[in-house]
Amino acid sequence: MAVYKRAYAGYSGDHTAAAGRFLVLTRYGWSDVFASRVFTAFYVLLALVPFVVGTLYIYISDSPTIQKMIDAQGFLAINRMFFLNWLQVQGWFSLLLAAWIGPSLISPDLTNGALPLFLSRPLSRVHYVLGKSLVLIVLISIISWIPALLLFGLQASIGEPGWAAKNLSLIPAIIASSLLWSAFLCALSLALSAWVRWRVVATGLTFAVFFVPAGFGAAMDAVLKTWVGNLLNFWWLMVVVWHYLFGVSDRLTLQLDGTPQRSAPFPAAVLTLCAATSFCFVLLNRRLRAKEVVRG
């Protein structure tokens, strides 16, 4: 099939491996999101600035000379709370990313009915969701657990001897908590964009899911004197998970003013987040059909 001949010829060349074909979706997803210069600049800032700040922080904390110069001895300790706070900041940025990028991944395929074209290829719905999810999960990973591990490595290499061994449990905590958070954000934003289809509305809804039920839950807790309302506050649930995995759960039990704080227990937090993620994937599964069946 040559352009100048305007004649059809079959394809007899090589084919790519079937197992990795869903990565085409991921590659096109990245090429699409980085086509925007605004997003590219924003993402570079998200990836670099916190990492550079963290690196400087570690460098300063491990340099007694500089600490003496700025009179901050003991204040800049690199401990579990440092990594927890750093990941929480990146957790918020991850939410921003999910709200911005998530809806643009699936809704364009649904808006003009392109989904049957995807699903008529040798590609299952699981592959489709996996390929689209990887776009967001990798973007979130690049600003969360990957730089966190690099910071851990930096501290291990320039910090006091034995620091790494003492804090080795941070590594699985960083990876597990970040993957749970990114899986939840990814499932939520993809499910919302699949159901709403309108990108702006899906972005708004992603934020709404975090703030509206949280407010309702807080009111419920205040009236009923319980922690059950916490389960509607996804951000707080993740904070609970982070504190437990990082081994600083005692920080959760007291508020800043010293009064006891009612908080969802760790198993309830993890289960709720996993259940919410699963529910989002169920919603996605219901929506991602090549053809919809109208009942009645």
Partner: peptide, 19 residues
């Protein structure tokens, strides 16, 4: 999967990515 790799499908309704 093999079947889908052997066919080209042109659906009835609009099917494209507008941008």
């Amino acid at each position: 999967v093999r079947l889908r790799s052997l066919v080209g499908y042109m659906p009835e309704n609009d099917a494209f990515i507008a941008r």
